[in-house]
């Protein structure tokens, strides 16, 4: 019985078709990152930004998109290490800072998001307002 339950759980938790899709990203599994960054916004998947973007963001948490989001040194460096390790490849030139301004993001959202959905979400950074599985890495439910 236990084995059966385990098998069922594994099947239920394996996001097989979604993993192959270009709009799915591995969810974050770092508890410190999820707790600290997830307090104000969704703990965005590290793969959304290049490693050098995360470095810039984590080095300036005191000015975090209009808010002070500073953390103690130990926590900051822990989260930074995690993000850089799981990030997208480094880019040359100016690294992007806002996921919502990335070219693919703009293209995906430009035409299909209704003004009602935008109003409900408040900001384009509020992924879970429309993508209910966003934190688990699913973005195809729009």
């Amino acid at each position: 019985m236990k084995k059966l339950l385990l098998a069922a759980a594994i099947i239920a938790l394996t996001p097989l078709p979604a993993m192959a899709d270009r709009t799915s990203y591995k969810p974050s599994n770092n508890p410190t990152f999820k707790k600290e960054c997830g307090a104000c916004h969704m703990a965005f998947q590290p793969g959304f930004l290049p490693a050098n973007s995360w470095e810039l963001i984590m080095d300036d948490l005191g000015n975090h998109f209009g808010e002070d989001a500073s953390l103690d040194d130990e926590t900051t460096s822990l989260i930074k290490q995690y993000l850089v390790k799981k990030a997208a490849r480094r880019v040359s030139g100016e690294p992007p800072l806002r996921i919502t301004r990335l070219r693919w993001f703009v293209r995906e959202h430009n035409h299909e998001v209704s003004s009602r959905a935008k109003k409900k979400a408040g900001t384009m950074s509020n992924c879970t307002s429309c993508h209910r599985g966003a934190e688990r890495g699913y973005f195809d439910d729009d």
Binding site: A39, C40, H41, M42, G66, A121, G122, T123, S125
Partner: peptide, 13 residues
């Protein structure tokens, strides 16, 4: 305006 209410971060959480 009231501490008894549920608030909302600027991102909407």
């Amino acid at each position: 305006s009231s501490p008894k209410n549920t608030g909302k971060t600027r991102v909407g959480k």
